Computed example of a mutant assay.
Amino acid sequence: MSSEAFLKVEGLAKTYPGSAEPVFDGVNFGIARGEFVCIIGHSGCGKTTILNALAGLESASAGHVFMDQREVAGPSLERGVVFQGHALMPWLSVRKNIAFAVRSRWKDWSAAQVDAQVEKYVEMVHLGAAIDKKPSALSGGMKQRVGIARAFAIEPKMLLLDEPFGALDALTRGTIQDELLRICAETHQTVFMITHDVDEAILLADKILLMSNGPQARVAEIVVNTMPRQRERATLHHDPQYYRIRNHLVDFLVARSKDLSHGRAPEHPPEVRPGLANDSAADSPVRAPLQRVV
C-alpha cells in the first residue's frame, strides 16, 4: 500500500453469526487524501457493511481500517456519514438539526459561532430560504441536502455516503450531484460513496471499486477515472473517454449478473498488493480503463 494513502483497508472480512461463509473477505484498497472513491457491486456483496466498518459503526470479523495513520475502532466525528434516508430529527428545524451536529463537534463554541457554521453550510447547499423550516415542509431532495450540509458542517476528515441519491428523481439527483461536486472541489473533501449508478460513479469518482459477487466478495478491480476532474453532467458524454469507461463498468456488472443467474461460485482474484492509482501496474490491482478497454 502506498505510504501516501490517507485511508487504508487491509484484509477486511465480515462473517455474520450462523453463516458458514463470509459476506466478503480479503478486501484491500487505499484512498488518498482529497480523493473521491465510489464502490459498485450487486446486492449482497457487502458494500454497506464495508462503509459501516469505515465509519466505525460495525466491527469487521478480520482485517483493519486505518485513517490518517490511526486504526478505526469506533464512531468518530472525524468521519461524517450520509445515509440512504435523510435521518433528520423531524421535531427540529434545518438550523437546529445541523446545529446539533456542530455542537457535538465543538462543545466549547458560542451560540454565534455555531449559528455562523450552520448558515455557511446551509448556504453552500442553497437552502438559506428553508433554514428555519422543519423536515416535514421540505421535499425529498431538500432533506438530502440538509443531510449533506450536516455532514460537511462538522468538517470531517472523511465523508461516507451510502447511496444518498438513490430514492430521488433524476432531475433532483442531478442537481445534488452538481452541488456535491462543487462542495468537494471547494473543501478538498475525501469521500467514499456507495452507488448503483454507473454514470453517477463516472461523474463523481476519481477511482471506482468493482466488487465481485458475495458471499466471499472481494474488490475484483479498481478502475481509475482518467477523465479530467472538472467534469459536468451536461457535457460528460461528449468526452471520448466516457463510453470506454462506461462500457467497461457495465460489462463487469453484466458479467456478474450472469454469474448470479447461473448460481456460479464467486470469483477469487489473485492476491496482489493493494495500491493507489500512482502505483506501478506490475504490483497493483489498479487498472485504468484506457489501458484495459480499447
Rank of each mutant, 00 (worst) to 15 (best):
S2D: 13
S2G: 04
A5F: 09
A5W: 04
V9D: 03
G11S: 13
Y16G: 01
Y16W: 09
P17E: 09
F24K: 01
G26K: 12
V27I: 13
F29C: 01
F36H: 04
C45G: 05
C45R: 01
T49I: 06
A53K: 00
A53S: 15
A60S: 13
A62P: 08
Q69I: 06
R70L: 09
R70C: 03
E71W: 12
L77D: 05
R79H: 10
F83H: 02
G85T: 13
G85Q: 15
L88N: 02
S93D: 10
N97H: 11
N97D: 07
N97W: 03
I98K: 04
I98E: 00
I98A: 07
R103V: 11
S104D: 12
A112N: 03
Q117L: 06
Q117N: 07
K120C: 10
V122E: 10
E123H: 13
M124P: 10
V125H: 02
V125E: 07
L127R: 06
I131F: 09
P135A: 05
L138C: 07
G140S: 07
K143A: 05
Q144W: 05
K157H: 08
F165I: 12
F165W: 07
T172A: 02
T172R: 04
D178G: 10
L180S: 06
A185L: 03
A185R: 15
I194R: 13
V198Q: 00
D199M: 05
E200V: 04
I202A: 00
L203R: 00
L204Y: 05
D206R: 03
K207A: 10
L209F: 03
S212H: 07
P215E: 09
P215F: 01
V219Y: 10
A220H: 15
A220D: 13
E221N: 03
V224F: 08
P228C: 11
P228N: 07
R233M: 01
A234L: 12
A234V: 04
T235D: 03
Y243E: 00
I245R: 00
D251R: 14
A255W: 09
S257T: 13
H262P: 00
R264W: 13
R264L: 14
E267F: 10
H268F: 11
R273M: 12
P274I: 07
L276Y: 04
A282F: 15
V286I: 10
V286K: 01
R287F: 01
P289D: 02
V293T: 14
